[in-house]
Every structure is written in C-alpha cells, then in structure tokens.
Design a protein around this nucleic acid. Sequence first.
DNA 1: TTAGGGTTAG
Length: 655
Amino acid sequence: MKNSNTKSAALSALSQCSATNPNLTSLFTKYVDKTSVSSWNSVIADLARNGDSLEALRAFSSMRKLSLVPNRSTFPCAIKSCSALFDLHSGRQAHQQAFVFGLQSDLFVSSALIDMYSKCGYLVDARTLFDEIPQRNVVSWTIMFTGYVQNGLSHDALILFKDFLKEESETEGEKEAGIDSVALVSVLSACSRVSGKGITEGLHGFIVKRGFQGDTRVGNTLMDAYAKCGEVGASRKVFDEMDEKDVISWNSMIAVYAQVGKSAEAMELFFALVRDKNVHYNSVTLSAVLLACAHSGALQVGKCLHNQAMKMGLQETVYIGTSVVDMYCKCGRIEAAKRAFNQMKEKNVKSWSAMVAGYGANGLAKEALDVFCCMNSSGVKPNYITFVSVLAACSHAGMLDEGKYWFSAMENRFGIEPGVEHYGCMIDLLGRAGRLGEAYNLIKKMKVKPDFVIWGSLLAACRMHRNVELGEISARKLFELDPKNCGYYVLLSNIYADAGRWDDVERMRLLMKNRGLMKPPGFSLVEIKGRVHVFLVGDMEHPEHERIHAYMEKLYVELEEAGYMPNMTSVLHDVNEEEKGMSIRVHSEKLAVAFGLMNSVPGAAIQVIKNLRICGDCHTMIKLISKIRKREIVVRDSKRFHHFKDGCCSCKDYW
DNA sequence: TTAGGGTTAG
C-alpha cells in the first residue's frame, strides 16, 4: 500500500513537473519504481503528451534496457513520439518489437504505426498495415485519410472516404464504424486541397444530414474548404451561421479574406473580433491581418499591429516576424523591414526570402543579393521561392550577368529545377536588355510549358525594342493562352503603330471590338489617417472628386511651368490626341497622389498602391511632383516599388 | 488506458 502511494506521488510529481520542466531524467531515477511497466507507461505517455518526444523515446529505450516487457499501452505512445520526430528508424524498431511481442495487430498499436509511416512519408507501408487491420474503427480510417492528405494525395483520401461510407453502411448498428467530427475535419481538409466545389457542397449536405453542422471545428474546416474552391461567399455564410465561433473560426475567415486580396473585409472582421469580448485574438490572427495590410499598403494599421505584437511578446517569433517584415517591405518601408528582420531570434527560409524579395521589389538588388549570401552562410537552404526572389531582384535592376549566374547555379549548385516564375524573370531580363533572340531560344528550351507571363514578358520586350516578327509570335501564343486579356492586343497594336503598319493597327482595334474586350480598370489605393481610399481611373465616385479634380487642374499648371509634357506612348494609338490627354490625366495613381497631397501635412511622405503597372506619363509626372512639392512619394505597382524623391525614382527609369 | 482533425508568413 505504502509502495503504491509513493509511486503515485512520484508520478503526480512527474506529471506536474513535465509541464514546466520537460527534463525529467533526474526525477525519473529518483522516484519511479523501475520494475513496474505501468510506471514507465505513465512516464512515456506524459512526456509524449507534453511534446517531449525525444525524452519519451529515451524513456522507452531505458525501459527496454531493463528488459521490461512493453505492453499494448506502451507502444502507441512510443510510436507517436517517433512520428512527432519524423524518426523513421526508431519507428521501424518499435514496429519490429511490437511484432515480436505479438502486438502488431492491436488496433491502437497498428493505428499509431500507420500514422508514423505516413508522417514519415512512407504511405505504401502505412496503407499495407491499414489493409491488414481486421476491424478498423473511425480513428484508423481518419489516420489513413490524413496520411493521404499530408502526403499530397488528397484525391486518394476522398476515394478512401467513399470506401469508408460503404463499410459504414454495411456495418450499420455496430459500434466501430460511425463518422465523427475529427474524421469529417480530415475529409474536409482533403476537399480544400482538391478545390472541388461540388465535393465540398456534397460533404456540406452530408454534415447537415448527420447533425454535425453545429460543431465548431467542422465549421472552421468547411469555411476553409469553400474558400479554397473560390467560394468566399459560402465561407462567410458558414461563418455567420456558426453557433459558437472560437478564435480559429475568426482566424480562418480573416485569413480567407486576406489571401484572396479582400483586405478591407479582413480588417473589418478583425475589428469586429477586437470588439467581441468572448474571444481573444492571437498570433495567427495578427499574421493574417498583417497580410491584409501588406496587400493594401495600410502602413498605419500595420504599424499598430506590429506594436501590438511587441506588447504580446511575439515580434521575435518566426511567423509574426516574417509577417511584419513582409508588411513593411510591401508598404515600401525597407528600413523598418530590415530592423524587424534583424530583431528576429529565429529566421527560416520564408523570413530570408521575404527580405530578399523586399529589397528586390524596392529596387535594391545589391542589398537583395547580399541578404541572399548571408542566408547561405547562415546555413538556411534556399528554396524554389527564394530563387524567384533572387532572380526578380536581378530583373528589377536589369542585372543580366548576376541573373544568368544565379539561374544556372540554382539548378547546378542547389539542385532546384527552374519553374515558370524563374524563366519569367530570365525572359524579362534578356528581353529588356534587347537580347530578344536569346530570350526566344530560352523559351524554346524550357522544360515547363511557357505560360502567359513568359510570352507577355517577351511581347513587352518586343514593344520596347520594336521587333514586329517576335512580337507577332508572342501575341499569337498569348491570344490562345489568355484571349480575354486586352493588354496584349494593345501591345501588339502599339508595335504595329511604331512600325507605321496602320492597317494592322486597325485590324487589332476591330479584333478587340469584335471580341468585346475592355481594358481592366486601373485602380490605386492611398492610406490617409489609417483609412484606405480607393481611386478608379477617371474616378467620379469618390465623395471629394470635385475638389480633387480642381486641385489637379492647379497642379497641372505648376507642372507645365516646370517643364512637364504629357507622354502618351502607353495609350492605345486609336484615340485622338485630345482624348489621350484627357484619359491620361485621370489615371488612378495621379488621383491618389493628388488626394495624398491634399490630405497630408507638407513634407509628409505619400504612399500609393496600384493594381497595374505604372505608365510612363504618371512616372514622369510623379517624379516632377516629388521635386516641386518636396515630397517623398512611394508607388507600389503590380511589379515593384517606385520611390520618388527630388525629381528622381529609385527604379532609375528602368521598370 | 494507449491511436486521429481545423487557422498564420516568403
């Protein structure tokens, strides 16, 4: 009796201690009854539960050294620790031992093994074991669903789910079968990865029929699944109809909005969450809202969130740190990004890539390459995305030799096969350097199918260097790949116009008219006092549009006195000079800059975000404004940043 | 007395 009390006291001490101090070795040797298997089981389970998998495996190994016989409760915990560590070697050893002790076909043991194999990427072994289980329950099915999903085979997970339903209907009334909420979450996460609207809707119906629609976690995953197949409205409906929303419900919905670029909705929902006294937001929430700030250039809100993260002691963590860095980069505040980056205690490949991309997009290619070199010497391996950032940095600065060097090193030294994004950067670099033939040859040699970005870069380069022949080839491809995008028709038309081929210009105009194509409307965003204002080209909707247009008239007089001449080369040639002048005067970035000038104190910097690329005339004009009004103006277009100061731009007129 | 799931950054 006394002995058992001591033991339970020891175990309770161990269990309390493990929450704060995972290193239990000393306590272990001191208290635990080393001859009792159940003591060891408790210790291993406790360690595994607290995430100290390495210590759990050590305990398992110590136990074996004492020649104690592990039982059906020992193995699942030990194997779970192998899964958590992705330690296939120890996992296989545990498997062998379980086999020796005749426990391989125990449902709990085999389930843990299936999970271990699939987490280590050995899905075939996992499936073999799964097929050998005489009587599967919903947990073993769920492990197998999740195994497929986590190994990128979500479609197979859905096929398996059909098998499950079949078996469930055959064994109706028996306890083992029967779907539960965990299994549904797993299947829904497969749906979200195959992006099938029909499947998601079907499963939604099933969820309602089986009475799981009130389950918060099922609802959370359903929202995500709808969003991933493009049904953001359906996600919101699920969110609104949820009886109980937890922080993950809010985070999921905010993240959905942030990821699809609905920044205003993401922020609105975040403010609603802040008002909701029942749920406290966390680092995941901040990460998602920071993404919304990055997209919409909401620097003021972004700064507040950064402050909040610091108050919560999160700014040094990888997720938040990277989100903050990305936000500052995308808001054009590279110095602030650098400070946040330097403060991060731990940096992973995404943090480094964000910084490389940030420098590149802000025209600081040398700094981008320096950071990239630091990354290499710090031992973090670059990945596919890192090289997109590196090559994009070279392309933004026209650094052809460096671009070529890293493009070849990427494959030869780092073993990363180039994808369309990498080729896109190279075509852009070669094309703009006037090496059109070389660019075309590279396209012909590509291992992946060239997409519209590739041909679009070549077409733009053909316009720049007046190459009709290659321009026609590129445009023909583009009309097939992306027939509704009128930008290509305009570019080709401009190429013809430059060559004086007016019949072809007319042919293009008719083609566009017959196909009913319209130029996508350009819009710009500017943040004033924490509120983001949207301007469309020729905007008459903004409540202050009359004041803005009056202000612009005055501005034009000043600009013309300073030598401004409208430059209309980027306007379609078929409109007359006067119309061209009018439409170019109301480009959204001009309106946004004017609004920024009107609503900020002299000397304050202005920041504008644009959905399309900036046109030559706006570029010239904003340079001049920065000089005559002594303002720093930052414009982020769809490709990069332009920092205007004292009549110059950071892109050095290369974009 | 042991096995399964949902939200975040490049």
